[in-house]
Design a protein around this nucleic acid. Structure first.
Lengths: 194, 194
DNA sequence: TGTAATCTTGAACTGACATTCAATAATGCC
DNA sequence: GGCATTATTGAATGTCAGTTCAAGATTACA
């Protein structure tokens, strides 16, 4: 059926390798050399398969969103009450971000690198965080209605606050903060989720 | 007294201009062209005066620390009780970070860009944030001893938490979060400082 | 006025990096 | 086996940014 020389690489596997490199180094920080050796490909094959560096990044970013991110926010729909779900997510962030040599959250990293860019991957990253914020808002609203939160707590403000917290944790993780600091930040954050 | 052609530029003024550019664009993001036109200098003069791009960055970073940063944490020694001082600082962060087109905190930006580098300006940035954290710890300890905090509040964890918050606010500011989100994060943070 | 010292100017140099390309290799189909 | 098709290889290319340098300009001092 398929004519011509068969590919020596698995596209998904190569993409996963590229994702790791971009995730740790960012777009600018990842040299084509590093990418190619991680993907175990030559430049020609890579450019034929993926187009260029930016397109490769976009696809690696997509892969992250479809796997890591979806899996992460899946915690919000776990068993337990709405508030328990939110608290679990914050705990997960803390666990993840305090792993040694943690790469952080690819989405946050991307947002930081591309800043206020109004198109492409930066826009996508902003939308995803917005979606996270919205999901937190509804979970926290549910929690408030169920009487799980202190009276007078503001679900909208709390959701913004939690997104802010994960942004901070991401920076901490990537800049080598000690575990105690990260743990302290998480513990204090959890005090507000009661 | 001074032989030779006199300089056409003011060193402090040129440094301040460089600081603005580095502050907004980061080290990699700031091209020499942009720096030179902001400083109103030619490459030769700049290299003769400052050495190279990295040294220029280091000096711009120093300038920031000696002016903006010192001025910022000065709020902690203002009038009022220890807790009031801490709350004022958080309020200042909120005000600052929600200004349109805010450049964020140069120290945080630098830390993010240079990541886990163990020397030079990254090490300096880490030390400065550590100093901020320590100052917050002692202020919050004072506050706890004065009965300003809820019983059982942990000053160490709270200080880590506040540093985390400012990291998050910095990311928000630089990635174009809306004011309401920033305000929500600040308001929720302040709930813990009671 | 002449000379040494210092600064300015901008073109040239250099290295790193993303990308392209021509030659080569491996497959399916006739 | 011959041919069309597709993949691999790595050297070559082009671009861009940081840096250098030689020529010219401006000053103080003798």
């Amino acid at each position: 059926m398929n004519r011509g020389r068969p590919r020596q690489f698995d596209e998904q596997q190569a993409l996963a390798a590229a994702m790791e490199v971009f995730w740790r180094r960012g777009f600018e920080g990842a040299s084509c050399d590093e990418l190619l050796s991680a993907m175990d490909m030559n430049s020609g094959s890579m450019y034929a398969a993926f187009g260029d560096k930016q397109t490769l990044f976009d696809r690696a970013f997509d892969l992250y969103c479809e796997t890591m991110f979806k899996q992460g926010i899946g915690v919000l729909d776990g068993p337990g009450t709405p508030l328990e779900n939110v608290r679990s997510l914050v705990e997960c962030w803390g666990e993840f971000m305090s792993q040694p040599n943690c790469k952080g959250c690819f989405i946050q990293n991307t947002l930081i690198e591309f800043g206020k860019n109004q198109d492409g991957v930066a826009k996508l990253a902003r939308q995803l965080l917005k979606r996270l914020q919205t999901m937190l808002e509804s979970k926290l609203t549910e929690a408030a209605e169920a009487g799980e939160l202190s009276p007078g707590a503001d679900p909208i403000a709390l959701a913004a606050f939690l997104v802010n917290t994960v942004s901070g944790l991401n920076v901490m993780a990537r800049t080598g903060a000690d575990q105690k600091t990260i743990r302290g930040a998480v513990d204090s954050t959890l005090l507000l989720l009661r």
